[in-house]
Simulated scan of single mutants.
Amino acid sequence: MAESDFTPYQQPSLPTISILAFPLPYLESRTSLSPLTLPFLSRIFLDFNHQWRHIFRWIYADSTFRKLSYAILQIALLDFRIVEDASRWNHKSLWGAYVNAHQLPPWQACEDSFFRVGNTFVVLDQGLQRAMAIVEQHAKDNITHPSDEQQPTKYFLLSVRHVMLCRAGKGGVLSYTQPTPFLNGVDAPSPEAIKITLEGLSPPYPHKITKLHQVPIEIQDRILEHASERSGISTARVSSRFGLAVFLVEGK
Rank of each mutant, 00 (worst) to 15 (best):
T197L: 13
A76Y: 01
S234W: 12
L20F: 07
A133N: 07
T120L: 00
P105H: 10
S18P: 10
P25S: 08
G171F: 01
T235D: 13
F121K: 06
W107R: 10
I19T: 04
P181H: 13
A236S: 08
T31C: 09
E136L: 01
P25K: 12
E250L: 09
S159H: 12
G251Q: 03
P105S: 11
D125P: 01
P204M: 06
R88S: 14
S202H: 04
I134Q: 10
I44S: 15
L224A: 06
S13N: 05
V99Q: 13
F65E: 12
P181L: 14
T235K: 15
L157W: 02
S231D: 07
L46S: 08
Y60I: 03
L73A: 04
V160I: 09
S93F: 06
T210V: 10
I55P: 05
P25V: 09
I217P: 13
I143Q: 02
Y98I: 15
N142Y: 08
T197M: 10
S228V: 11
I82D: 03
S32N: 14
R161A: 13
S113L: 15
Q74N: 15
F242H: 15
P106K: 03
G127Y: 01
T177D: 07
F45I: 00
F156G: 06
F242Y: 15
F242L: 15
S87N: 13
Y60S: 03
V238R: 15
